[in-house]
Amino acid sequence: MSKVYLALQDNDISRYIVEAIEEDNPGVTIIHNPAMIRIENEGTLVVNRETVEEKLGRDWDVQELHLNLITLGGNVDEDDERLSLSWNA
């Protein structure tokens, strides 16, 4: 299985998003580079609205992710509840 990845700007909101990702994707790898955080996982990665809201303590629209997103790799599927990344092979 190949790795999917997501890179976020290293800022205050991303900190909580990363916490949510860590909780929902056991085994995920977090790499800190200057000004950015890179998150990698084997095969799939999911960002759940509910978990992010819990960490942030406020409503959060999945599309708000775009404000902090730098780049990603994998097939994207997004709806009101989550954004997921996956490779089929």
Binding site: Q9, N33, H66, L67, L69, I70, T71
Partner: peptide, 29 residues
Amino acid sequence: FVPFMSGAAYNGDMATVTFGFSAQSDEAR
């Protein structure tokens, strides 16, 4: 836009890293 911009941050250039990552957030789309 990713390693080079991260490099801009590392060289104290906040303006460039910011436009770089802001552009790259569109690039994700």
